[in-house]
Design a protein around this nucleic acid. Sequence first.
DNA 1: AAACGATTCAACCGCTACTAA
DNA 2: CTTAGTAGCGGTTGAATCGTT
Length: 203
Amino acid sequence: MGRVPCCEKDNVKRGQWTPEEDNKLASYIAQHGTHNWRLIPKNAGLQRCGKSCRLRWTNYLRPDLKDGEFSEAEEQTIMRLHAVLGNRWSIIAAQLSGRTDNDVKNYWNTKLKKKLSGMGIDPVTHNPFSHLMAEITTALPPPHVAHLAEAALSCFKDEMLHLLTKKRFDFQLQRSNAPQGTNASTCLTTKMMRKRIMWRRSG
DNA sequence: AAACGATTCAACCGCTACTAA
DNA sequence: CTTAGTAGCGGTTGAATCGTT
């Protein structure tokens, strides 16, 4: 009944992929395509689960993937679609050529969510926090509102402190030595990009 | 120079819908 | 129709890296 198992879990390697593994997978797929993920690791000589191979291919090895930072336009598209679709990352990613759902999800969680919060917009509902507070005050009795407001204020205080500290650091860095349009985060991204390119070349 | 906390993102996990036997 | 594997998705984790103290 049914089909044979996808892979033997005991005999499967996990963790970071090596350039050799990447090469094996990429060259196998270049020749044979991605018709059967269960057979791909076996035929390509990889001790990996088919699921792991599929993920590695779709998120990293696919030749049509776009490298580099998200553009302003891409950022706007993500924000606009997230406001309508919520966390439907694959659908959102499908509107951005060369981006994967994992890319979009990570970008949202690490950058856009904070950016929206910093602008006073709730990243879940995409409404200003003031709207949220107004809704809460009408929905809850006064004692609950007071407790909630106290809790929210302490969260907000921490978040603002964090944002202001980071802003000040970025500003100082920009003023002291960086060329126009450069800040700490783009420096970091550039370093990571270089690392990724070197990694690919070494393979 | 070392320790520490924050951040990023690749990879894994668990679930669901679909499909083959 | 039932069972079990596959593909794909979103949530989560943890190693690597960075900046700060």
